[in-house]
């Protein structure tokens, strides 16, 4: 009875098409570029009959400036950890209480009580990762779990290192390497930090984004970069390894939150609950190649990612990782000045 099956499928397709055509609502997501799984969005659209529109941004500052200017029409935004408090303080986020949602039980305890959103009253984990060292081990065989790879590079790596031009992460790693704490305004430490960075810079080849193909072409032998990109570099150059700097490394976590002036707050709440489902969270991970914060998502992840050493922080290094808070404007100002001196 093949025709019956065909007819049934055609009918289903028709209703599905009619369903999206007569969508009961809309949802406008404002997220980082190339970060939202289309497969997951399609599943959400079909499950709730909602038409989703995604708009990209390329930095936290861009997103903040645009939303603050008003008239944006977005419902969901996905700021980084260090920015969530700014969004909250500026009164831009809705206290949507994800902690009282049905799927909240799936959120990994590690990502619940964080300084920037204690108890998760505003935001839901999207993806997380960290910046560490990426090294081509066919060129350098020593210890890679240290920031010395790019701050005091071994001779083999000199002139072949790329450092991501991220002011916050570079400053953080250099401060920890010199024995200071994040957001310190201790002039002694900062002077050492500045001198160390300026001393190390001539040993780098670039401060740029886009390392994956350059490890494959062996233009780079080491980098200070994100773990997800390190995994993708390893897929193209099997000698590439990711190191967790023992002096300290900074996690990043982007979290989805609802804007206070959202036009579709109900759909937005459905969406936050939706992405706390393990299968849906795994879809986001599989697309963007970073880990998510949802327990039980592991079985749904791509086999290559499930046990990737870049995405699963070894227990021995977990203590060295922390989330970066937003420093006071005065301290940010000092860091920006050191950064300018570095790039002058």
């Amino acid at each position: 009875m093949k025709w019956k099956l065909t007819a049934a499928l055609a009918g289903a397709a028709f209703f599905a098409a009619a369903g999206t055509a007569h969508a009961e609502g809309e949802l406008n997501i404002y997220n980082w570029g190339n970060y939202t799984s289309p497969e997951m969005i399609k599943k959400f659209e079909e499950a709730y009959k909602v038409k989703v529109t995604i708009t990209d941004y390329d930095s936290n500052d861009t997103a903040l400036a645009k939303v603050r200017a008003g008239g944006h029409g977005f419902d969901i935004v996905v700021p980084s950890a260090s920015f969530v408090q700014i969004w909250v303080k500026e009164g831009l986020l809705l206290e949507s209480r994800p902690d009282q949602m049905e799927n909240f039980k799936n959120v990994d305890e590690r990502w619940v009580n964080l300084d920037w959103d204690p108890g998760r009253h505003y935001s839901v984990p999207w993806l997380w990762g960290l910046m560490g060292t990426v090294v081509d081990t066919s060129i350098y065989k020593g210890d890679i779990n240290t920031s010395a790879i790019w701050l005091d590079p071994p001779p083999e790596l000199v002139g072949k290192i790329n450092v991501a031009p991220e002011m916050t992460d570079v400053m953080y790693s250099a401060i920890r390497y010199m024995g200071g704490k994040w957001c310190t305004d201790d002039k002694e430490v900062l002077k050492k930090v500045r001198d160390k960075l300026i001393e190390a810079k001539p040993k780098w080849i670039a401060m740029d984004y886009g390392t994956i193909e350059k490890f494959a072409s062996r233009d780079y032998a080491a980098a200070f970069y994100w773990n997800g990109a390190a995994m993708r570099s390893r897929e193209q150059n099997k000698d590439v390894r990711f190191g967790y700097p023992k002096e300290g490394f900074a996690y990043f976590m982007d979290s989805a939150a609802i804007l206070k002036d959202a036009k579709n707050p109900d759909n937005a709440k459905l969406f936050l609950n939706f992405i706390m489902d393990p299968e849906n969270a795994a879809m986001i991970s599989n697309f963007a190649k970073y880990a998510n914060g949802i327990k039980g998502s592991q079985p749904f992840m791509d086999p290559a990612m499930k046990d990737a050493p870049e995405l699963n922080v070894p227990a021995e290094f977990q203590a060295a990782g922390e989330f970066l808070t937003t420093c006071s404007p005065e301290v940010t100002d000092i860091y920006a000045k050191i950064w300018q001196q570095l790039l002058k």
């Binding site: 930095s59 500052d61 790329n162 670039a206 002058k344």
Partner: peptide, 24 residues
């Protein structure tokens, strides 16, 4: 930005920094 590797800023990059990470 693309060919110079971003190690040394030019005026355009310096201005961009102030509106982005420099927050000034």
């Amino acid at each position: 930005r693309v060919l110079g590797g971003g190690k040394n800023m030019m005026l355009g990059n310096l201005i961009e920094l102030q509106f982005g990470q420099g927050r000034n």
